[in-house]
Design a protein around this nucleic acid. Structure first.
Lengths: 244, 244
DNA sequence: TAGTGGTCTAGACCACGAC
DNA sequence: TCGTGGTCTAGACCACTAA
């Protein structure tokens, strides 16, 4: 009988195992952001594989944007930056058409464990979630009102992270505190009218036209780990999408 | 002195040349859609390269969605289908939430050579364009009103293609008649109000809220080859975007 | 069973970057 | 100049599909 090595190791190809191994090194911080990783030859030797196999593993992660190859210099861990991976998101327009990607600041309103509404429970496959409410804006001008839901099983302790450690961006927090790397997101846009809560948060009249973005975000292993709904003033709304 | 072989051949890597060669075979119809292409071994022999090099070329095209590998069977040319490449586009919602991807039909209103408006000329880098107006809808219900602009230098003769040969989808026409494969598109969404023309085409009141999508589409070699602006009734509008 | 793509190896040489 | 990734080779063996 064949042994079945622990974990998800059911005789996967070597390059897949290497890829996952490297990925966890990155996520865990074992390979620090912006640092060089060992050369392909080193890695091959250390893992008892050929350079070609290591190469294929690294290629995969480079394609995902976790690593960056620089000929002549080495291969480097890519930090979460605004062009890579996850940040072709909102381009908040500032009256004129500039694509000045200003990072909106973020005012936290609430963090609490709640029972997930039906739509959220279906998307995340659990009812036990932590809810986060926040308003994002630029220089005291509210742009977006967001309701965010994350499974409490995965993000246990999120409610108790000091406010100071929560910057304007949530995904780096997921990574740093919970080792969760958001890898894919699906946005669903539509238009509607502001209810009382939304209009209050965005300084609008009740019933004013708003853009609605529902997003489901997935981690590397394709588990849905976040669901959010965001509301923005339709008059100032701008969304950019690249289809490749 | 070193010879400089024709075309764009400035000593590119072999796998790149192979890739482009294969790509043109697909676009020209030399390799027919849904047919099997020669095996890797055959291609390697024919082009005087190793299997590994052919493999890298094919990998690239498979990644772009032009080819599909099937272990044990061969590698096949992928037709323009609704999941591959270009069709994570509109999901027109039909009152309920179904993701039933109905292909909207299309009523052609106008085809004519015009001088491009400023925004279009900037995007396409030329003033000589063909303008296409059309309304897309589902069972006589107008959903989208589109103004489309394509460079007349590239799409010379487009105005004279018989109406019968223009289906509900334009990109297959670009491919078939002009060998242009749309490879990437950038959508820019915002909201506004219907002017007289738009409201008329969409059966709305003037001033009614509409979604506006501006799209620039690019061919394989990154040249912008189409610019369009589409208007949809905001109340029934739905847009889906995958971020990877 | 024959033929295809999928994995993996071991090593050659090239192009680039930093020292 | 040296070490890195980038290209390319030639061939072995595996996994799958179809006849």
């Amino acid at each position: 009988m064949v042994l079945n090595i622990s974990h998800t190791d059911t005789r996967l190809p070597a390059y897949v195992q290497l890829r996952d191994d490297f990925a966890s090194k990155i996520v865990s911080g074992d390979w620090a952001v912006n640092e060089r990783i060992p050369s392909e030859a080193m890695l091959a030797k250390k893992h008892g594989a050929s350079v070609g196999t290591v190469r294929k593993a690294v290629d995969g992660l480079a394609l995902e944007g976790l690593l960056e190859r620089r000929q002549g210099s080495g291969t480097f861990v890519k930090g979460l930056s605004f062009d890579s991976t996850l940040f072709r998101f909102f381009q908040v327009r500032d009256i004129d058409d500039q694509r000045s990607l200003t990072i909106p600041n973020s005012e936290l309103i609430l963090r609490a464990r709640v029972v997930a509404p039906k739509e959220v429970a279906e998307a995340l496959d659990t009812e036990n979630v932590i809810q986060i409410l926040r308003v994002r804006g630029i220089s005291n001008n509210p742009i977006l009102f967001e309701k965010i839901f994350i499974p409490s099983s995965i993000f246990d302790g999120f409610e108790t992270i000091p406010d100071g450690e929560l910057g304007p961006l949530l995904y780096p927090v997921y990574l740093k505190h919970f080792g969760i790397l958001i890898h894919k997101a699906v946005d669903d846009l539509s238009f509607g009218n502001a209810d009382k809560q939304v209009s209050h948060r965005l300084n609008l009249e009740t019933g004013a036209p708003v853009a609605i973005i529902k997003r489901t975000a997935y981690s590397r292993d394709k588990t849905p780990v976040e669901w959010r709904i965001a509301f923005g003033n339709a008059a100032h709304f701008r969304y950019r999408s690249e289809i490749t």
